[in-house]
């Protein structure tokens, strides 16, 4: 589904990603872990197409297409979804209205008819129960005055509504208490199918107790320095990132 080859990316002339290689197949859950400043969020943003980052080398292929040819909104249309670490606020725009626009813009991109109010409502009701989100939240301005947990739940709700092929969850657990993590993780698990994939980007192992990854990768200084199964996450939790750093320094 997703194939990243030797990806290098800069921001303001500073190289953040220095040769990433990553393959994700349909049905898989991958976790990217790493210390602060290792390039985790940059990787998410580059896949989603954020223009502040300059890709200097390498390629990203998604469903057989070169992603570099696509704008961020086209990538969304192709089925890439990014759950933001810090979801933004739009005063005066209801969450429902925003999601409806998103759903129909993506349908338009795919050459599908827009959903009418009744269909949309039906789908919304169905997905609301999945992430345990309250109707009153959806009629409020997008993310305005939402608590940290509400914002993240809203992200997962949008993911449920947009049904992406690849969902990238950027630090979805940050700032959440354990109950909120459980709710969010449950939502993500219910949305998993054999046709879609999830890329979890996280600093801590705790989210991986609830969303079990098939593969864990450790990102350090812009490179994936170690890959393994979920046991690698436990090892990291136990030993801290220092042992990875030490290993890398030794190897170099």
């Amino acid at each position: 589904m997703l194939s990243i080859r030797n990806l290098h990316a800069n921001i303001d002339g500073k190289e953040i990603l220095r040769g990433i290689n990553l393959d994700i197949k349909a049905g898989e859950v991958h976790a990217i872990m790493g210390p602060n400043g290792s390039g985790k969020s940059t990787l998410s943003a580059v896949i989603a197409g954020r223009e502040d980052y300059e890709v200097t080398e390498g390629e990203i292929e998604f469903m057989g297409k070169n992603l570099m040819d696509f704008s961020p909104e086209e990538r969304a249309g192709e089925g890439i979804f990014l759950s933001f670490q810090y979801p933004i606020e739009i005063p005066g725009l209801t969450t429902t209205n925003f999601i409806k626009t998103a759903v129909n813009e993506i349908r338009k991109y795919r050459g599908q008819e827009p959903m009418d109010a009744v269909q949309f409502l039906k789908k919304m009701k169905e997905k609301m129960t999945l992430v345990n989100i309250d109707q009153s939240l959806l009629s409020r301005s997008l993310n305005e005055g939402f608590s940290g947990g509400e914002k993240k739940r809203n992200e997962i709700f949008q993911m449920a509504m947009l049904e992406p092929r690849l969902a990238i969850l950027d630090e979805t657990d940050s700032g959440l208490d354990i109950d909120a993590i459980r709710i969010v993780a449950n939502g993500v698990n219910k949305l998993r199918t054999k046709d879609n994939a999830v890329l979890l980007v996280t600093h801590y192992q705790r989210l991986l107790d609830y969303i079990i990854p098939d593969f864990v990768h450790v990102l350090y200084k812009g490179r994936i320095v170690k890959s393994g199964t979920k046991e690698l996450a436990y090892e990291l939790e136990e030993k801290g990132y220092d042992f990875i750093k030490a290993e890398v320094e030794q190897g170099a």
Binding site: E73, F98, T101, A102
Partner: peptide, 9 residues
């Protein structure tokens, strides 16, 4: 960018 990422130009 947030809107773009949701498919909105």
């Amino acid at each position: 960018f947030y809107c773009n990422q949701r498919g909105i130009d």
